[in-house]
Write a protein that binds this DNA or RNA. Structure first.
Lengths: 252, 252
DNA sequence: ATCATAGTCGTCTGCCTGACGATAAACACT
DNA sequence: AGTGTTTATCGTCAGGCAGACGACTATGAT
């Protein structure tokens, strides 16, 4: 426990982001193409180095804004603008995870409503929303049938952990609303659950459940027809963050 | 995203440990007394620097062994010796959390059965099991009425996060068995839940619940009387890690 | 007008939970 | 030996919630 300098070898610390959204009924993650070695040309999660005077959450919020333009709202700020939810996911520090040097990466999870096309330094061809199954299956094919190699570094593991966190967290928290615009219908919220869990849910039981959970949804009074069919009531996310009772993910 | 060396200031990376156990019906955490500045003489969580060739989990397991003699079993090793459960908790990286230099600490959570006295470099007076409420309440009093200052650094926050993780995780996982010896009775397991949650549970409903949850408990055939009263069946932890249905923490 | 689509309200049944009575098997007394 | 105390274990019962599913409503498309 002495502070002999040889006792604490220098590390580089980065933040990596698992940014999830729901597009066209599929859970998608933001991927950027690497412009340099190692893993040049491969897809990776967005991220970057933590600056000397920066908190980890600040660094993650900064990277998120740089990559997507999203303004993250911390848990401390209850503002419900169209910012994204951002939370720490886990930290990855295998000595060999980066071949160049010792890098410890603090991964963060961001949940965002469906967004316009991403931007990565202004170059749209180097950033894309991709369905998570596509990014996680090895040897799959990406957009335009270009052969897709696995994600760079240990990013496949990080993405898998982030997806699993999101899947379990929408069970007992109101986080699914982070995938929705400020006002949304019960049907849109249901399609979020269906996309994230990859299951079909009974619209009638789902409606009863979410409208019956105190603090989950607050009706705004308005109605809308967005998908054809009977107009639906519009809701806003209620103040509750923990759902009681929780939403139950169907067995297998 | 360039690798200009000025872009990645050097960090020190440490692991801190929240080691929890249940002693005398109370949830206790391991605390060590700091021998040097800053916070000299104050209580802190055990921890230390990650070595150059070490994974984060390895570093945490090494520190745990050094402080307690416990042999941590990773999630990958299903062995149920009297090792402790060890998992990553969260990472703390406020630029000012250590006044000397930029330190990022990857906190880990360990759950252990009741143990003999702790050792901290062979000096027992510099390590103790303390009830978590005692460590978390500011200005409380420690053993032998010595006035107790708050934990060093941001360790009160880390401990609070670890306790909250343990409280919620025993709801939906079989982790409560990590607080028990290899063989235990339903009553002992119930007292673990009562200590961690700080509530009283109905023995009859608890017995029905845990014996009815598939994969949670496996009877060993033996019986024991450890607290007086009728002998109880002995159980071993079953293979299930996720409880379905979960244990429900009583409302406030 | 008719159909397709989506939303909303009800009903019914089975399961789980919490509250709690009753019995069983040990120990500590007298 | 008998009595009380403690802990373990089994049962019962009522209330609530979830899944399955029928019925009705309100819009747009043809």
């Amino acid at each position: 426990m002495s502070y002999d300098p040889s006792a604490f070898p220098p590390f580089a610390v980065t933040v990596d982001l698992v940014v999830l959204t729901v597009r066209r009924h599929a859970l998608c993650a933001l991927a950027v193409r690497r412009g340099e070695s190692p893993f040049q040309g491969r897809w990776a999660l967005p991220g970057g180095f933590v600056r000397a005077d920066e908190d980890l959450a600040q660094a993650a919020a900064r990277e998120l804004a740089e990559e997507t333009g999203l303004h993250a709202h911390d848990a401390s700020v209850p503002v419900q603008d169209n910012g994204a939810h951002l939370e720490q996911l886990a930290t990855y520090g295998d000595p060999k995870r980066d071949p160049r040097m010792r890098v410890v990466s603090v991964a963060h999870l961001a949940l965002a409503p469906d967004l316009p096309a991403p931007r990565a330094g202004g170059d749209a061809s180097n950033a894309r929303w991709a369905p998570v199954e596509e990014l996680l299956q090895q040897g799959g094919y990406g957009r335009e049938d270009e052969p897709m190699a696995p994600l760079a570094f240990d990013h496949a593991q990080i993405l898998a952990d982030g997806v699993e966190r999101a899947r379990s967290k929408i069970e007992y928290s109101s986080l699914a609303t982070a995938f929705c615009p400020p006002e949304f219908t019960v049907g849109e919220l249901r399609r979020v659950y269906e996309a994230v869990w990859g299951v079909a849910l009974d619209p009638r039981n789902f409606h009863r459940k979410v409208t019956g959970t105190p603090g989950f949804l607050v009706p705004t009074g308005g109605t809308t027809t967005r998908q054809g069919g009977r107009p639906a009531q519009l809701f806003r996310a209620g103040g509750a963050t923990l759902l009681n009772p929780p939403m139950l993910r169907p067995e297998v």
